[in-house]
Amino acid sequence: MATADEIYAKVRETLVEALGLDDDEVTPEATLVGDLGAESIDFLDIVFRLEKNFSIKIPKGELFPEGFNAADANLVKDGLVTEQGISELRSRLPHLDIDKFAKNPKVENIQDLFTVQMIVNYVQKKLAGGAA
């Protein structure tokens, strides 16, 4: 069983490879988009690399949420994630810090939830057994 430090080191290595970063740019609090410059296509690359590096399978939409960019009125209304959307995020993606997000649930703030630590949390749960 990998320790939290080992998982973090491997996640860092994964992000360094996927995003062309220097080791010291990656910190637990760093956001993927804001701080590390990830673009939408990088998320697919990151998922591929995590699967390979940790020998896990990450189903579509399990690590990064899907459907919140589209105009699904049940999930997003007037640029804000609805109550239903928030509860879906909570149940589908428990590794995200939803409490913080719920205070200002603008759609564009979702990406601020994608931090290095979030990936570490996800992988940790995933390795501990089954779905994160």
Binding site: L44, D45, F48, E51, K52, K60
Partner: peptide, 10 residues
């Protein structure tokens, strides 16, 4: 082909 899935491949 290193990886192939519904939404992409490597």
């Amino acid at each position: 082909l290193l990886d192939a899935r519904e939404d992409g491949g490597v």
